[in-house]
């Protein structure tokens, strides 16, 4: 489904070069929900942008649905870290969700239906005609998610989407992602720096080292598929997993990296 092979990314300016990603390889199966955690500045956004075809890798490459990525792949949607800035301030909520659909060849009625369903799925009925800046941060984030959902992507990339919302909204949005993922059978790659969030959401958690980045560990999350904030988070296994990942991140911050190969 999605394959990253020997990816390396070096930012080169006239003044300095930054090796953000050294060597990252992994596979994501169809319909999987994989979380990526790593310390700030680990190159998570860089990795996501390479997968999204927004940045050209320095070496290696990405394959999505059997096609090498050279530009943004057709069946992919990205929810950006700076969600507030990713909504068009001159368009209503409805038009923001609609715009990408206009590129798709389908009857107008079907488009309207997709917009309506997506906004209903993120619990945003009744604000269709509002401008994004008239909404709260959590609502804006849900508009960005609705836009991605309405697009009917096969792959959904999310970059720290809940970093700027309050704890309660965050818990709600996490559950929303689980619900949407299970309902739409979409492949999700979810970047976060929150260890609890990664364990709660993911089927797998990939721990990234500091830049220049390699993958420290690929942890399988063997928690039941049915997850609720209260129960799942108080399971013994949840605690073990988060402790394990926490120690990995501590190692990463101290600069430890897995032996090459």
């Amino acid at each position: 489904m999605l394959e990253v092979k020997g990816l390396r990314k070096v930012y080169e300016d006239t003044s300095r070069t930054v090796e953000a990603i050294r060597d990252v390889s992994f596979c994501v199966g169809e319909g999987e929900l994989v979380c990526i955690v790593g310390p700030s500045g680990a190159g998570k956004t860089t990795l996501l942008k390479c997968i999204a075809g927004l940045l050209a890798p320095t070496a290696g490459g990405v394959i999505v649905e059997a096609t090498p990525v050279v530009g943004p792949p057709p069946a992919m949607a990205v929810v950006f870290q700076e969600y507030g800035r990713s909504l068009f301030p001159w368009m209503s909520v409805h038009d923001n969700v609609m715009l990408p659909l206009k590129q798709k060849n389908m009857p107008a009625a079907r488009r309207e239906e997709l917009v309506r369903d997506a906004l209903a799925a993120v619990d945003l009925k009744g604000v269709e005609s509002a401008y994004p800046w008239q909404l709260s941060g959590g609502m804006q984030q849900r508009v960005a998610i609705a836009r991605a959902v309405a697009y009917e992507p096969h792959v959904l990339l999310m970059d720290e989407p809940f970093a700027a919302v309050d704890a309660q909204t965050r818990a709600d949005l996490e559950d929303l992602i689980r619900v949407l993922w299970r309902r739409l059978r979409v492949t999700v790659l979810f970047v976060t720096h929150d260890i609890d969030e990664s364990v709660y959401l993911g089927q797998r958690v990939m721990v990234m080292s500091q830049a220049p980045t390699v993958i420290m560990e690929d942890v399988a999350v063997d928690l039941p598929d049915e997850r609720t904030q209260l129960e799942t988070r108080s399971m013994a296994r949840f605690g073990e997993l988060r402790k394990h990942i926490y120690s990995q991140i501590q190692l990463a911050k101290q600069g430890w990296r897995p032996p090459a190969g």
């Binding site: 943004p72 950006f80 800035r85 990713s86 990408p100 590129q103």
Partner: peptide
């Protein structure tokens, strides 16, 4: 960020001009 959004949703030339560049 808006420019990357436009790009990642593969929004075409005309729509890009009309819905992004000009209003922005």
């Amino acid at each position: 960020v808006l420019a990357e959004t436009v790009r990642s949703y593969r929004i075409g030339r005309f729509a890009r001009l009309w819905h992004f560049t000009l209003p922005g």
